[in-house]
């Protein structure tokens, strides 16, 4: 009889403990965006979450040639990147730049679809330029983060991070659309 009573008490305690544990995981990880970071380098292929990414380099300038000359109070950054998927045609949900202070920069609006993430296919690579606008003090330490899946605080995900070496120029940057690459090209 006493053994049965202890068993019920034990199971109740386990249930409470499991609930508390789940709550702790939710508070500390899920609610703050639980994700795995795959770190890569420029000029190499990095694969994560069904995407393959290859960063060629990055250029910064205060000027952008978008039919007319546009000047930023900070700097425009154009990241030269190629990517493909591993399984099906899709577009990365989000690609951002992150600086040393953790600030995130997305594509600026008002420049059309050029300079924004594009659709890629399974082992069908495209190369193009991704446009960002950052404060001048951020350009010294920038990392490109590719987020293949939609960021969701309730779901774990995988992101690719590649540190950038940014070359600063005074001549204006030019936006171009992505191009399909032949097999083996990056």
């Amino acid at each position: 009889m006493r053994r049965a009573r202890w068993a019920v008490a034990g199971m109740a305690a386990v249930a409470v403990a499991v609930g508390g544990g789940a709550n702790a995981v939710d508070s500390n990880y899920l609610a703050s965006g639980w994700h795995t970071v795959v770190r890569g380098e420029s000029a190499t292929d990095v694969a994560a979450a069904s995407f393959q990414v290859h960063v060629h380099g990055a250029t910064a300038s205060p000027h952008l040639d978008d039919d007319e000359l546009v000047t930023s109070p900070g700097l425009f950054v154009l990241v030269d990147v190629s990517y493909a998927t591993e399984d099906a045609w899709r577009t990365p949900e989000e690609i951002v730049l992150i600086d040393a202070d953790g600030r995130e920069f997305t594509q600026p609006s008002g420049f059309g679809s050029a300079g924004s993430p594009w659709l890629a296919g399974p082992d069908i690579w495209f190369r193009g330029g991704l446009l960002f606008e950052v404060p001048a003090d951020a350009v010294a330490d920038l990392t490109l983060e590719v987020r293949p899946e939609r960021p969701n605080a309730q779901l774990p995900s995988t992101v690719v991070r590649v540190p950038l070496t940014v070359t600063t120029e005074s001549s204006p940057l030019t936006l171009t659309y992505e191009t399909l690459l032949a097999e083996g090209e990056r």
Binding site: E86, D87, A88, W89, L119, G121, P122, D123, I124
Partner: peptide, 15 residues
């Protein structure tokens, strides 16, 4: 879409 032996799905009408 065309499915191949590697599980890749190639979408019609692209490129």
């Amino acid at each position: 879409e065309v499915l191949d032996t590697q599980g890749r799905e190639f979408l019609a009408g692209r490129e």
